[in-house]
Amino acid sequence: MALAKEDIAFIKEHLGEWLVEVSLGKPPAVYEIELRERMVRVEEELKHQRELMRQGFEQVERRFEQADKRFEQIDKRFEQVERRFEQVDRRFDEMIKRNDRHFLWLIGFITTIAALIIAAGKLL
């Protein structure tokens, strides 16, 4: 069953009055003052919530900054480790070159000794 336009108009006209009656029979002025007080309290609470959210975001931002600093420190440590590995690589390269020279000298020495032994064997 649908409402007629007249019924809807009647309801719209009297809705405010009915709401006032339901709010314990308080006159419209008292009801309006209570609504304003409630609105002020809600606004204050919203302001407080915004402040708490801002503080929370600031803390999160500080934590991200600390994490960035830690990552920078880790990067520095990796750079130090990389430099050390480069130094070790240079030392190994130098050792290999030195060992190659020693090996060549050893081969030359063995060849010379062998040639002298063969020459001494032919002369004797």
Rank of each mutant, 00 (worst) to 15 (best):
F57R: 15
E45I: 04
Q87G: 02
K12C: 04
R83S: 12
E51L: 15
F71I: 13
K47W: 03
I118F: 06
F78G: 02
F71R: 11
F71N: 11
A4V: 09
G108W: 08
V60R: 15
F85K: 12
Q73G: 08
G25S: 09
Q66N: 05
A67S: 09
E34W: 07
T112L: 12
L15E: 14
I33G: 07
Q73P: 03
Q59M: 11
F92D: 04
V30M: 05
L3W: 07
M39Q: 15
K5N: 08
A115Y: 05
H102I: 15
A120K: 08
E61K: 14
R77A: 02
E45S: 06
E61W: 12
I118Q: 02
F103H: 10
L15N: 11
I118W: 03
K69S: 12
E6H: 06
T111N: 03
A9D: 00
A2N: 09
K26W: 09
E6K: 07
R91D: 04
E37Y: 06
R90M: 02
L15K: 12
R84H: 13
I110M: 07
V81T: 05
K97P: 04
E37S: 08
E17R: 07
F57M: 15
S23Q: 13
E44H: 08
E17F: 05
K97R: 15
T112A: 10
E65T: 03
A115V: 08
L123S: 09
W105E: 15
M1A: 06
V60N: 14
E65Y: 01
E34Y: 08
E32F: 13
L116Y: 03
R84Q: 13
I96V: 15
R70P: 03
G121K: 15
A2Y: 03
A119L: 06
H14D: 13
L24A: 14
M53G: 06
E79V: 00
I96C: 09
E45P: 01
E32Y: 11
L15Q: 14
E44L: 09
Q66D: 07
W18K: 02
Q80R: 04
E21G: 01
V42P: 03
R41F: 10
K47A: 12
E79I: 00
Q73D: 09
A114H: 06
E51V: 13
E65G: 00
P28E: 02
R101L: 03
K26Y: 11
L116H: 03
E37L: 12
Q73R: 08
R101F: 01
E72K: 11
Q87N: 03
E86D: 09
Q87H: 01
V88G: 00
P27W: 11
L46I: 08
A2D: 06
A29P: 01
E34D: 09
R98Q: 09
L123V: 11
K12M: 05
K97A: 14
I11A: 00
E45K: 09
R84D: 12
E37Q: 13
M39A: 13
E65N: 02
V40Q: 11
E94L: 15
K12T: 02
I107N: 07
K69P: 04
T111L: 05
E17D: 10
A67L: 13
F10L: 02
A115P: 01
